[in-house]
């Protein structure tokens, strides 16, 4: 553990940010269980991929910046990467579900745009 060289305010702030981020991610996963249809459930993981990720990345930037004594922005790349890739996966998954529902003629299939 190298956490000992962190001042108390930074430790509390890092923990608060990480807990808030984990809370949003967990809420997203709960939504994956609780919401009833697929098209509702697709919205749930976005919680972890946006605000949950952003809070945890901020905690990481703060931790390493304080611990190393200079600004470490490396973890922002995770944020950038997730922001660019998540829409691609979700849109493609939504398209696949739409295609399958329409091909099978399900009642809850999306209408034509």
């Amino acid at each position: 553990m190298t956490g000992a060289d962190l001042p108390a305010w930074a430790a509390w702030l890092v923990v608060a940010l990480a807990l808030a981020g984990a809370g949003f991610s967990l809420t997203g996963a709960v939504g994956l269980i609780r919401l009833r249809t697929f098209y509702e459930r697709v919205h749930a993981p976005t919680l972890g991929a946006t605000l949950g990720m952003a809070l945890i990345v901020t905690a990481s930037v703060l931790y390493f910046s304080v611990a190393e004594g200079h600004l470490v922005l490396r973890d922002l790349l995770i944020g950038l990467f997730l922001t660019v890739t998540t829409p691609v996966t979700l849109i493609l998954l939504g398209r696949a579900a739409t295609y399958r529902d329409r091909a099978e003629g399900n009642a809850d299939a999306p209408p034509d745009p």
């Binding site: 553990m1 956490g3 000992a4 962190l6 001042p7 108390a8 930074a10 430790a11 509390w12 890092v14 923990v15 608060a16 990480a18 807990l19 981020g21 984990a22 809370g23 991610s25 967990l26 997203g28 996963a29 709960v30 994956l32 269980i33 459930r41 993981p45 972890g48 945890i56």
Partner: peptide, 28 residues
Amino acid sequence: MSPTLVLTYGLGLAQAMLVLAMVLAAWR
């Protein structure tokens, strides 16, 4: 509490929450 303890327990709790999220997603 010392900063080290805060980090150990707080981040441990955050990790546990994320693992629980993984379990819920695996259930799906």
